[in-house]
Computed example of a mutant assay.
Amino acid sequence: MVPASLRLRLVVPGNIRHNSGGNVYNAALARGLADLGAEVETCPLDGGWPGGSAEDRRRLSGLLLSAPRGSVTLVDSLIASGAPEEMEAAAAAGHPAWILLHMPLPDLEREGRAMAAAAGVICTSGSAAARIAARHGLDNIGVALPGTASAPLAAGSLATGSGVPHFIAVAALLPNKDQALLLDALAQLTELPWTASLIGSDTADPDYAAWLRDSVQRLGLVRKVSIPGELRGGALEAEWSAADLSLLISRAEAYGLVVIESLARGIPVVVRDGTGAVEALAAGGGTPLPGRAVGLGTDPAPLADLLRQWLTDAALRARWRDAARAGRGRLPGWDATARTVLEIVGAHGRPTGWSPRPSQAGSAG
């Protein structure tokens, strides 16, 4: 019997233009699902999400209510969690949509209504799933962790025992990512040799990006820190290749895709304790961890102290680097993410006779 094709529509926000973790996840998931034999339609929806205008929500409602019979609609939580009325109307019309949750939103009441109306919720991290379950008492929550693509091993500036250590912080220039605290920590280390690149979109919050660049001047870091904006292609790969330590100290993070992108290149990572990035740091399994989670508030001293320790302790650098390289082969690929999504959706019903096509993709190592 020829398997029936599963048709899946992925509704994603069109107003997030920068290379966010959510955008990367959504695009990689769509490719992974197609590779497994699903018929995937990605539907970018422009608007002021989360929340959106009345016209934005009208267009969402049209998408949800026009779902082909037997298809599955998966809506990014940035859209769905702020549009409970549209999710409820779709469910009442017999077209309940799934929610793909990257990050919980502040409006608990509207988020809870949207999730109660959904066919189910798929979270992109265990920490997000636990938070949502505690918030709303839901039991229809699945977890599909991010994968990562194979990547070359980063040479790093210290690979041969010479050169200046290089930090890399890949994240949009946004207050939540707390590059301001990072710069304050680095300013306490100016007597040591190092360089740093803060790489990410400077258009998502232009005022904050400008303030960060002014801070580089104010803190006397011009010779050590560059803020080139968002990089892609060869320019980004060159930065990855030169990196010795990756930094992600966001105040809130559901997972932190850049953490496993770093680990895929054998680059250890420092993350903020208490965020979902801690989960990502352990993605490769094994001990010791390829980096460390540091407790942070508004004082940069704990981060500065840890970075000073790393800069001055060759044995620590070697342990973290060896752990990152050892875990590369254990990182899941995006095929695993796609297969998990299909298994979750399938547990709630799929077209008769459908089964995923065997994938040739392997782990990210």
Rank of each mutant, 00 (worst) to 15 (best):
L6A: 11
E88W: 10
L63G: 09
V170R: 07
N23P: 00
L181Q: 14
A338Q: 01
S250M: 07
L108T: 15
A338P: 00
G349T: 11
N176L: 13
A323K: 09
V12E: 08
V143F: 08
W98P: 05
G70Y: 11
V72F: 03
S157Y: 02
P165G: 10
R308H: 13
A204V: 10
G333S: 11
A235C: 00
V12G: 03
Y255R: 06
L10W: 01
E239Y: 01
D35V: 03
G234L: 08
P165Y: 11
R110G: 05
G346W: 01
W310C: 07
E41L: 14
R272H: 05
G291Y: 04
A27C: 02
A169I: 04
R339E: 07
E253L: 04
S359M: 11
G126K: 04
G256H: 05
A97P: 08
A134E: 15
P175D: 06
R317I: 04
T298F: 01
D207P: 07
S125T: 10
R113I: 11
L183C: 07
M1S: 09
R272K: 13
S66K: 09
Q188I: 03
I249V: 15
G256E: 05
S66G: 15
G82A: 03
G286I: 06
V11D: 00
D207R: 12
A159Y: 12
V11I: 15
D46Y: 10
W240R: 04
E88C: 12
L181Y: 03
G82N: 02
T275Q: 10
L212N: 04
A116V: 10
L65Q: 10
L316G: 06
A89E: 15
V11R: 02
I249G: 03
W320C: 00
G349C: 10
E191Y: 01
Q360L: 13
G70E: 08
E261M: 11
G349E: 10
A154Q: 06
A318P: 00
G32A: 04
H348S: 11
K224D: 03
